[in-house]
Write a protein that binds this DNA or RNA. Structure first.
Lengths: 341, 341
DNA sequence: GGTCATTTCGAAAACGTTTTCGATTCCGAA
DNA sequence: TTCGGAATCGAAAACGTTTTCGAAATGACC
C-alpha cells in the first residue's frame, strides 16, 4: 500500500510539490532539466496520480453513467458495446445501472449518478416513465443527458433514435407489396414511445395502401424477457382470426414466440402466415425459418450517443452554448425466410 | 448549478460546518434540536453530498470495476445482471470494461481501475492472458480482486467458477449412457482454463467408460462471436469421420453452428448425430431441435462474485485478515431434444 | 456558589491534487 | 555596475468533506 504521491517525489528530489505537479503536466515554466528529473523519479517510484483528488480539484470525473431499462440481453448489449468502445476511445469510464423498467428506480439511479458526479449520463427510458422532471433537473444542474432508443419527445436534450414509425411503415408496406392482405400486429405496451411509433407505422402503412385498419388485429405483448407472450398471443389470434396471413411483431423475441407456436401447431410460415420481426437480434438467424426483420443499429447507436454526450460535456466545460441534436439512425429490412414463400 | 454544500447550510443556520456534517451523519454529540434544524435545512436546500470529496476524505469510492473478456453477449450478460443486482443491493456502483480477449488491454484496464481508486475488481481473464503479475500487483496494492469463470489457478485470490471438468465429464458420460459410442469434441482454444478443463472432462469420461480417446475426433473452435466455427467444423468432421454419432461442443454457440449445418445437410439430429452444448444460452431453446446443454449459473456467479469481493473490501478496511475462497457453483444437465432419440 | 461531569459545539488538520500569483535567480545589455 | 526582462520555482489557496481534540456551555450536586 505504498502509493507514491506528489509529495514523495518532491521530497525525494528536494523540490516542491508544485514543481513536481507542473513538471508532470508539462507546464512551460519548469526547466527541461528538472522536468526530466521529475519524470524519471516518478517513473522509478511508480507514481500514479490519485484520480479522486484530481476529480475534486478539477471538478470532473471522466466518467459517464448509463441507465438502461432492461436486462443487458439482446439489443441493449449491442448498444452497450458501442458505448463501451467509444467511451474508452475518448478516455471515459462508464458506470452501468439497470432500472428494470421501473420509474422510481430510474429516478433514484439518476440521482445517484449525479451525486457521484459523473460528467454526463446516457439513458434509455423505462416503460413506466411518463414524468420527466428528474431528467430536466439533471440537465438544470449542468449534467448533460442524452437519451437513446426509448426517448421522450418532450424532454429538451439530445437524442439518438431510429425512426420507429418509418421502419414499421416500411415493414408493413413490404408485407403488403408481397401480397399479404390481412396483417396483424403484436404491439408492445402503451407508454413507451417506440411501441407507439411502431404501432402508428403499422396503421399508416395499412391506410396508405387502402387496407382498413382493424383494432381487433392488434394484440399487446408487454413482457419482454421471454417469448411466451408471442407464443400465447399467436395461439389466441389463430383462434380468433384464423384467416390472417401475416403478423408484424414489435420485437424479434415476440416473433420467435409466434414462430415457435406455429412450428408446434403445424402452421406453415410463411405459407399460411408470414412473420416479420424487429431489431435483428442474434437469434433471428437461429430460428427456423429464419426471421425477416428490421436491422436496428445498436452498436452505432451506442457509439453516437457517447460521442454526442462527450461533445456536450466539453461544451459545458468551455462555457460554449450547447445545441441539442436529434440523430436518426437508418434502419433497413433484412429479408429472410419467414416472409418469402 | 447551485449545488448546496455543507458550508451553505452552516451559514444559513449560523453554525459551523463541523456541526452540520456531524448532525447529518448522526453523531451523538449534537443536540436533537440542532440536528433537527440541520436536517430540515438540508432538505429544503436540497443538499446532496459531493461524493468525490467524500471519497477523497474516506479513501473509498463505493465502486467496483469489472473486466470481462468478451462482448456482453450470451453468458456474460447473465453474469453482468447478477453483478449489477448484487452490487446495487450492497450500495456499490459498477464500472464495466471489456478486454476483447487481449492481454495488453486487460492489463491497461486493470491499471486504470486502480488508478480510479475502485474499491475492488472482478475479472474474467482474456484468452491470451498467461502472465498474472498485473493481478498480483493489484492485490499487493490492497485492491482485492476476485476472478470468475475464466480464472487462473495460480493466482492467489478468491475465485468463483463452475467445475468445467466435472460438467464436461457428466455431459459425455450422459451421452455414453444414452448409447452413443463415437463421440467427438469441438473444443475451444488452448489457453483458457475452462477450455482445457472441458476437454479433460471429455477425455476422462471416455476413458472411465472404456472408450479409447482419439485425438482425431477433437476439433478446435476458437471464434466465439458467431456460430460459423461450429458450422464449418461440422462440415469438416462429417467428411473426415462420417461415422460419429455424437458431438460434445464447448459452447451452445458452437453447438448451434453444428445443428445449423446438420439441418441444412439433411443430417438428422439426434438420430444420426446427437449434439450436446454448454452454457444454456437463451437461444438453445430457439433452435430446432432444442439443444441439450449444461446449465451454467451466470446470474448466480455474478451475485456471489460481488458478494465475496465486497466482503473482502470490508475485511481490508477493518484490517481483518482476508481469507480467499474458491466457490464452485453447481451445474446440471438440461436434457432437450438434441440428444434424445 | 463552587465543583465536576456531561453535553454541545467548532477550529483545524487532513485527504492529494491543481493553479494562481508572487518571489527569486539568472543573464545580457547598457 | 546596474537595470530589466526572462526563466524558474514555491507558498498558499482551493476543491468539499470527515474527524480529532479541545473549548465552552450547561446541568447536577453538595
Amino acid at each position: 500500500m505504498n502509493d507514491t504521491k506528489l509529495i514523495d517525489i518532491a521530497s525525494a528530489l528536494g523540490i516542491s510539490v508544485t514543481t513536481v505537479s507542473k513538471a508532470l503536466k508539462g507546464y512551460t515554466d519548469i526547466s527541461k532539466s528538472t522536468r526530466a528529473k521529475v519524470i524519471e523519479m516518478a517513473e522509478t517510484m511508480n507514481y500514479i496520480p490519485n484520480s479522486v483528488a484530481v476529480n475534486l480539484r478539477t471538478n470532473e470525473t471522466k466518467t459517464i453513467g448509463v441507465i438502461i431499462p432492461a436486462t443487458v440481453h439482446h439489443f441493449f448489449s449491442s448498444v452497450l458495446n458501442g458505448i463501451l468502445e467509444e467511451a474508452e476511445k475518448r478516455g471515459y469510464l462508464v458506470i452501468i445501472l439497470q432500472s428494470n423498467e421501473k420509474y422510481e428506480l430510474e429516478k433514484k439511479q439518476l440521482a445517484l449518478l449525479i451525486q457521484k458526479r459523473v460528467d454526463g449520463v446516457l439513458m434509455s427510458l423505462s416503460n413506466e416513465t411518463d414524468d420527466f422532471s428528474h431528467i430536466n433537473e439533471a440537465i438544470r444542474k449542468n449534467t448533460p443527458v442524452v437519451l437513446f432508443d426509448k426517448i421522450a419527445k418532450r424532454v429538451d436534450c439530445s437524442k439518438v433514435v431510429i425512426n420507429d414509425a418509418k421502419a414499421a411503415f416500411d415493414a408493413v408496406s413490404y408485407l403488403i407489396n408481397k401480397g399479404f392482405k390481412k396483417i396483424a400486429h403484436f404491439r408492445g405496451s402503451y407508454v413507451p414511445q417506440n411501441s407507439i411509433d411502431r404501432f402508428l407505422g403499422y396503421k399508416r402503412a395499412l391506410e396508405a395502401n387502402g387496407i382498413e385498419y382493424d383494432s381487433k388485429l392488434v394484440y399487446v405483448c408487454d413482457n419482454n424477457t421471454d417469448f411466451e407472450d408471442g407464443y400465447e398471443n399467436a395461439q389466441k389470434i389463430m383462434n380468433e382470426h384464423p384467416d390472417i396471413d401475416a403478423i408484424f411483431a414489435i420485437t424479434d423475441l415476440v416473433a420467435i414466440g409466434i414462430i415457435k407456436y406455429f412450428n408446434e401447431a403445424g402452421i406453415k410460415t410463411p405459407d399460411q402466415v408470414a412473420v416479420f420481426g424487429f431489431s435483428n437480434w442474434f437469434m433471428s438467424t437461429v430460428i427456423s425459418p429464419k426471421l425477416t426483420t428490421i436491422d436496428q443499429p445498436g452498436f452505432e447507436m451506442g457509439h453516437t450517443a457517447v460521442s454526442i454526450l462527450i461533445d456536450e460535456i466539453a461544451d459545458i466545460k468551455e462555457h460554449r452554448p450547447v445545441t441539442h441534436q436529434i440523430i436518426e439512425l437508418p434502419t433497413r429490412i433484412i429479408e429472410r425466410e419467414s416472409t418469402v414463400k
